[in-house]
Nucleic acid binder design. Structure first.
Lengths: 262, 262
DNA sequence: TTAAAGCGTATTATTATATGATACTTTGTA
DNA sequence: TACAAAGTATCATATAATAATACGCTTTAA
């Protein structure tokens, strides 16, 4: 049913090129858990028939966006995917402004430092400066994390107006990631309130055990949180008091020094 | 003329979806120097007429791949571009294997450490661990650099067989980037020979003044250079003797410890 | 060793879908 | 204020994408 009306809308709109959308769907079929896909898998994931998968897959291969293993005939993303990332990074003033300050901070603090952007009910990391060994995913640029389980997401929501905040707290997904991930929405509301009061977000053991995340907000001219600068430290090395006393103020200072255009 | 035969080939091949290719062309219109584009600019860059640019642009916008400034009506890459990068990074075993070792190395040496992959006559950076402030472009993942002007490219070419090496040295582009960029192909051949003899690549002042790049090769099962691990240091801080004595051996050790599949 | 199933590849007729010309609207500038 | 340039909307047409079908190869089970 949804599919029918969707098709109808597309059909009526001659400014929407369905083939492009399908090709993009093939590209985004690849992810952390789908690093290498065969034709039939792609067909299944994208909801296309074999022929369609064949065509788009072939086109992406010929244009250099997909690698094809000659033996297994399976596809993988190519370096072109990374080049697109470079184009994004050049276009984002937040990244350009934050980068030098975060490098400096990372040098002085010796801990992992990141920057993120809100993306719906998630955040996406746009800068990652690894200094300590952790899980691979904690070093990945472009990684998507559910907002409510991250320090960044919490300070973002904390600056929403009443209505949006209520909506986010009621409806945004909160899947359990670690045994300590807070999934109780009332508790989460408390966390967000505290973040609002403090001015920065905190997340303890939410995505990785023994990890504390601290996030300070960067505002755009409209006064919304357009991004966050973040630091991740080990609980064992950094008791909460020291986090509040030594890390948070410096992150806030960095965040405040970043003035975004428009 | 080339265009005609190209068109013909595409026309005959029903497995090639031209609309997708055009959409991709729009996406890749964005780059370091084209961070924000209007409709007409996109039309010009991609060689499309206004209508085509309108359709693809609109489709990319509606699917969330392009941001559109409501006031200026200009387009910019969206975070989706970064998500694709994450998919690539997950899929590349070299990145996964190299990452922890390079973080460790970066911590101990305190200098910028990178990894790159060959891409035609260029290399593309797949890992960047910034520790010292430099130009923004030197911190960018996905950044493309002409191979012959980089330490990584030189050690890659050094491991080519006779014929490919000759071809690369004769035909690959060598645009001047800094006043000291080596553009003399005979000199470049010397550099590559020396790299072959040493086992690692060196590039002094080639992309950034006062910068020394050092690259060690990582081989795949077929014995080709599939990637490089690299370190960038300041000439002022690191005289060449120390680079050879202290950095190169450690990079070689790291490179040798990375065993790529297939 | 053979049969069967599953996957990737190739070819085709059909028409849905992308196309590009044109006209309209808005924006910015002389 | 008027003109030019950029963005937006509409539409008839045929190109170019489609999905069905058939083929060949590899893997697994009988």
């Amino acid at each position: 049913m949804g599919k029918v009306s969707e098709k109808k809308r597309e059909k009526q709109d001659t400014l929407f090129v369905g083939s492009l959308e399908k090709g993009l769907r093939v590209m985004s079929a690849f992810s952390a858990h789908r690093t290498e896909l065969g034709l039939m898998e792609i067909a299944e994931i994208t909801g296309m028939d074999k022929s369609a998968a064949q065509r788009f897959t072939n086109t992406l291969h010929r244009t250099g966006y997909l690698e094809k293993d000659a033996e297994t005939r399976r596809f993988r993303p190519s370096l072109r995917f990374l080049e697109l990332a470079a184009a994004y990074l050049w276009s984002d003033p937040f990244v350009q402004l934050a980068m030098p300050k975060l490098i400096e901070f990372s040098r002085s603090i010796g801990e992992r430092v990141n920057a993120a952007r809100p993306a719906g009910s998630d955040i996406i990391y746009v800068i990652r400066i690894p200094t300590q060994l952790t899980s691979f995913s904690a070093m990945l640029i472009g990684k998507r994390v559910q907002a409510l389980s991250s320090s960044s997401g919490r300070i973002i929501v904390a600056h929403f107006d009443e209505e949006r905040r209520r909506d986010a707290l009621a409806n945004w997904p909160i899947d359990r990631v670690t045994p300590k991930t807070v999934t109780d929405r009332a508790l989460l509301a408390k966390e967000v309130e505290e973040a609002a009061a403090r001015g920065y977000g905190i997340a303890v053991d939410q995505n990785i055990i023994n990890e504390i995340g601290i996030s300070a907000p960067v505002f755009n001219q409209a006064g919304e949180v357009a991004g966050t600068v973040q630091c991740s430290v080990s609980h064992l090395k950094w008791p909460l008091e020291r986090v509040h006393a030594e890390i948070a103020p410096r992150l806030m200072e960095i965040a405040n020094s970043i003035i975004l255009p428009r």
